[in-house]
Design a protein around this nucleic acid. Structure first.
Lengths: 211, 211
DNA sequence: TGGCATACTGTTCAAATGAACAGTTATTGA
DNA sequence: TCAATAACTGTTCATTTGAACAGTATGCCA
């Protein structure tokens, strides 16, 4: 069941579908039949209606009869439940996960399916600094996604130490939790007082530097 | 300039804004004034209109006068130019970047800013198999994002070899291009006939396996 | 105390929009 | 060669929807 059965569509229908998608993307809502008509220079609005009908019949669009702008791209419909806007906190996310007061630097948009999390997952993102986790293939500059929950041993977590958050592997030895960097040049961190786990890593996004 | 000046909004206005956003997210288009009215149980449609007017005045919404569903969340308006829907091709993307005929497995949604690419960038995604690029911190199961363009030496590229695409580092020695795995267990690849570069890697997305 | 913003009710009107009906022309497959 | 489909033109109508007008009540500020 492909999301867009474009192979079954005619060339003209693909054009119309493309316009509907682009309009949806750019304007935030689908076009009206008359906007489609104007874009393609149809003398009749019915030409647009015919195309929409064909596209809906072939499953490329979802149609809400009688409603204004009722033709939605099937792709957008599939996405609509799953797009996450993940707040990216900067370099000083003190007391982050509970205190929602902290203003995020900006938001990262990723769909839930691609991250393998629920559409209702509450994630936050941190920018990685330093090379302490290169052994786990997490690099300086990477954006890591985390969810606030209790970690299992072996999970990579963001933890609050001395008012600053660091990304480390969470381990337990003889009942005592500690943090380990994935880089032999860094020592293990034994919690002096208490260990505040902000979140468990669920994924990462990297910008590949230009060669 | 925060994307949503929610601090200036009243509690009720935040509620209405939240409904507009949720509706936009879930349905793919903004609600009508009457849908807002119904949701909040207003006896009058004007109550919704008043709220929209206030929200538009405070910059939380963009308003397109006279048009159906003309009230768009300002945040969505900011996002609308930047969300990329990147087709993810499976394990056999033969002849991919030019032939748009190939059906993508599905789409990955990421905003352009987080990937550091233009909003008009045409990207595609591939799933990484194998451990040949672990030296570049690219793991089995990672999703890599690529753009079709000529590579500079040192770039990581998807190249077509024997009808199958592989991810390797593109290098040039004495005027001759070749591909190198980032794993000492793999040999360099010298192109027997010709080297078809499908795309240059611009980023990656990883699902962190549960510990 | 007056003025202003918020948060509404109730009603009416006009524009935006979807949808139907009746055709035409060309292409394709049985 | 008939039937079906695609891709349109031209017209009309009904519904959806935005928008305006005239109010009411409350709280806040100066």
């Amino acid at each position: 069941m492909p999301p867009t059965p474009s192979s079954e569509l005619t060339a003209r229908q693909r054009e119309v579908l493309g316009f509907v998608r682009d309009h949806q993307r750019y304007h935030g809502h689908p076009p009206t039949t008359r906007e489609i008509q104007a874009h393609f220079g149809f003398a009749s609005q019915t030409a647009a209606v015919d195309h929409l009908r064909a596209l809906a019949r072939k499953g490329a669009l979802h149609h809400h009869a009688g409603k204004a702008r009722g033709h939605l791209p099937a792709l957008a419909a599939a996405l609509r439940t799953s797009l996450l806007e993940i707040p990216l906190y900067g370099t000083i996310p003190a007391g982050l996960p509970t205190a929602a007061e902290q203003e995020p630097d900006r938001y990262v948009s990723v769909d839930a399916a691609s991250l393998g999390v629920s559409a209702r997952a509450r994630l936050f993102a941190l920018r990685v600094r330093g090379d302490s986790m290169t052994g786990a293939h997490i690099l300086d500059g990477d954006t890591v996604f985390l969810t606030p929950r209790d970690p299992r041993p072996g999970a990579i977590v963001a933890a609050l130490i001395d008012g600053e958050s660091t990304l480390k592997r969470f381990l337990v030895q003889r009942g005592r939790p500690f943090l380990r960097a994935e880089n032999p040049r860094y020592p293990d961190l034994l919690p002096a007082t208490e260990l505040i786990i902000q979140g468990v890593m669920v994924g990462l996004l990297r910008q590949q530097p230009a060669a």
